[in-house]
């Protein structure tokens, strides 16, 4: 067990059982465009390592904020501040207009900020429906007869996944048998169901092929349609562009700008990311990936713009 895990064990013991049993996703969402998270000149130092400085952006209901940057640019550091995993050391973090320091993931969750990390937090051998409710299982009955509400769990899991456009053969199959993209989508659907207003996705497409990335991007668009604010971390501008409403670029821990979609083009975004020199190679890569699955990309664009 690593030191980190041990810490987690201790934290867990202190934690009282506060897992929300009642999903809050049925609440009416705020009108699209309402800022939920605003950060101003935010920064994070690890001792004397400055991992992040002077980052300003906003995360709004019904919008997708893309955080772009190369490896080591500070993307994970940024979202860890939003997710409550690390507290920021500089600048200001406002949630619903109130200035805050998030001291733990639990605090962030209670504010409706859910994070889907790359390892997805699923148990591969367990059926999809058990995974969907893991840690917040609904029960019925009292005393020793208190038991899982299996039928509700199964139908809810199936319906929630269907609402996200994921049509599963069978919610009884082990989640390990789903494709990487499908698993990512189940994790997203779960966060949405358990009342997330803000959904943070750390490089959800990094380990996926072109087609599966497309599937995940579709669900990001779906989540936005449902009125959620999405923070989408990626190092691929071609994944960010079709779904993003706002683009924040990071390089070496510094913000290179925060642009609404109307103020930037894909070419400019790509150029800024690649620093100009690798632009050719990247645009070729773009062409080949678009060519391989152009129908899907068209679908996707139609859906996100329509």
């Amino acid at each position: 067990m690593t030191a980190h895990e041990k810490q987690a064990v201790e934290a867990e013991e202190k934690r009282t059982d506060t897992v929300a049993d009642e999903p809050t996703s049925t609440d009416t969402p705020p009108p699209p465009g309402t800022p939920i998270i605003e950060v101003e000149n935010i920064g994070k130092r690890y001792g004397n390592v400055i991992a992040l400085s002077d980052v300003t952006t906003s995360v709004r209901a019904g919008e997708v904020t893309c955080v772009l940057g190369d490896n080591g640019a500070g993307k994970s550091t940024f979202i860890k501040i939003l997710a409550g995993a690390h507290e920021h050391t500089d600048g200001e973090l406002k949630i619903d207009g109130i200035s805050r320091h998030l001291s733990s993931p639990r605090v962030a969750l209670d504010l409706g900020i859910a994070t889907v990390y790359q390892d997805l937090a699923v148990v591969p051998l367990m059926p999809v429906w058990r995974n969907f409710f893991l840690g917040s299982e609904p029960t019925k009955g009292f005393g020793p007869l208190r038991r899982l509400d299996v039928s509700t769990m199964k139908t809810t899991a199936k319906d929630e996944l269907a609402a996200m456009g994921i049509d599963l053969r069978d919610v009884d199959q082990p989640i390990g048998t789903l494709s990487g993209g499908e698993r990512q989508c189940v994790a997203i659907a779960r966060a949405v169901y358990f009342g997330a207003r803000v959904l943070i996705l750390d490089e959800p497409t990094a380990a996926l092929g072109v087609k599966q990335s497309g599937v995940v991007l579709k669900y990001i668009a779906k989540a936005r349609e449902r009125g959620l604010a999405v923070v989408f971390i990626t190092h691929n501008p071609h994944h960010a562009w079709p779904v993003g409403d706002r683009f924040m670029l990071l390089r070496r821990g510094k913000s290179m700008g925060d642009f609404p979609k109307s103020e930037i083009t894909l070419d400019k975004l790509t150029a800024m990311m690649a620093g100009g020199t690798e632009l050719d190679a990247l645009s070729k890569e773009l062409e080949s990936s678009l060519g391989a699955d152009s129908e899907l990309i068209r679908d996707m664009k139609a859906e996100t713009r329509g």
Binding site: V123, P124, M126, L134, G135, L148
Partner: peptide
């Protein structure tokens, strides 16, 4: 048929993931 049963399968199958979702 119980929560605890769900947790038993989960902690045996993926301990870190279980912790992340609040088991």
């Amino acid at each position: 048929r119980t929560k605890v049963g769900n947790w038993i399968f989960a902690v045996g199958g993926a301990q870190t993931a279980s912790r992340q979702v609040g088991v």
